[in-house]
Amino acid sequence: MKPAPFDYYAPSTLEEVLALLGQHGDEAKLLAGGQSLMPLINMRLARPAVLVDINRLPGLDYIREDDGMIAIGALTRHASVASSNVLKKSCPMLPHAAQFVGDLQVRNRGTFGGSIAHADPASEFCAVVYTLGGEIVARHAGGSRVIPVEEFFEAPLTTALTPREIATEVRVARIKGAAWSFRGIAPRFGDFVLAGVGIALDFDGEGRCGACRVGMFGVGPTPLRAYKAEQSCVGNRLDEKLIVELAELAATEADPSSDVHASAGYRRELLRWLVGWNLRNASRKHQEEMK
């Protein structure tokens, strides 16, 4: 439970970070909040030769509205996401999801950018960004690029970032209206989910579904969208018959695996229930808002 030896750098400019990454490549690991990386290092499951601590970089801790999206600086702590008034107004699914991330101490230290770059398949934050749509701003020594979230998550703990890149900002789409819902099921409050679902819906004046997004997490190697269920939703009234159909459809689109916590079949069953619960919850919130 003691880390293997490594060299440690704590640069105060992005240029120095990029130079260190350029020099050390995949020998180096970026250290942000460290709430996932430090356990791996303590248990020696990770043995990076070089740690580049980015906590002393200025100007990466912010949440602001930008061109219809919300821009979140990579070093924004989970606790700031949980309490942000900008997010509560324009993207309430994120602060809602934040309460299920880790525990109080983890939320005090963990960073939003770190959580996205770590790409745990059961991560609430990865799930929300994937569900609502968004993009990740990545910097490297030669410049920067913007990666759509659909292309960002490649496999468990694996993203499109190269060893010489750093994610500096995550942008997530706003939520219009009240018709959203998010819920996961975990063995204990704050633990990794066995299955989770996030939903954002538009309704037209007649009460029929418009754009619909159904995100699933903990039930595949990356966050997933239930595209078939989303398409079947559009243009229809969200009655009980349709909800059951959509839940069935979404469950076929998931790709859960079995482990010590739950079988693949159990995860799929939870997912089916969660899609139904979240659709009913989103629909109820919409109706309350219309009153």
């Binding site: 439970m1 440690y8 460290g34 709430q35 430090m38 356990p39 303590n42 740690l51 601590d53 109080l104 101490q105 983890v106 005090n108 230290r109």
Partner: peptide, 8 residues
């Protein structure tokens, strides 16, 4: 509050 075992 933070866990001191996760800090260097």
């Amino acid at each position: 509050s933070m866990k001191s075992c996760l800090l260097l």
